[in-house]
Simulated scan of single mutants.
Amino acid sequence: MRFMILVKADKNSEAGTLPDEKLMTEMGKYNEELMKAGVLLAGEGLHPSSKGARVKFSGTQRTVVDGPFAETKELIAGFWIFQVKSKEEAIEWVKRCPNPMPGESEIEIRQIFEAEDFGPEFTPELRDAEERLRAQLESKK
């Protein structure tokens, strides 16, 4: 099972404040532990929403809204993608994470859909197209 681990933003991450050396060292050790355990598939920090944009959809119309975005508690400061056996295992790994923000912070855990989750609507033709796309992405690494 794959899970996306979402590090929630706070006023400091939204202000563009970078982590200090101590936190970067702790996170480096944590990421190394995840990698050695075969859990870590990807992980990155994100720039503040002031450098981002959103595209809103309404039927065929698209509207671009530039950041920053007001609701800091709904924003993401970074992420990992874990490969684990269960949600409980993902939770246990996240509980071992250094606190990513000064003071209080929150990390959200969300399971990633796999092909088999989509049922019969995910036809053999769609599966083949998806597999070709994934193979192309993999070959670019």
Rank of each mutant, 00 (worst) to 15 (best):
R2A: 10
T123E: 14
L41E: 00
A53M: 13
A15P: 04
L133S: 10
I5C: 02
E104D: 15
E116C: 05
N99D: 13
G16F: 05
E104L: 06
I76Y: 01
I5K: 00
V39S: 01
R110T: 13
S105W: 00
C97A: 11
S50W: 02
W93I: 03
P100Q: 01
E104T: 11
F3V: 01
G59Y: 05
A77W: 03
E114L: 07
D10H: 05
F3W: 07
G16Q: 06
E32R: 07
F57G: 12
Q136E: 14
N12D: 07
I81A: 01
T25I: 01
A9N: 02
L34E: 03
E33P: 05
P102Q: 01
A129T: 09
H47I: 11
Q61T: 12
V65L: 10
P19R: 00
R134W: 11
E92I: 04
L34S: 02
P120Y: 10
K85T: 10
A77H: 02
A129V: 04
E14F: 05
V64M: 08
M35W: 15
Q83R: 13
D10Q: 08
F69S: 07
K73W: 00
I76R: 00
F69G: 03
M27P: 07
I76L: 12
G52Q: 06
R132K: 08
S86H: 09
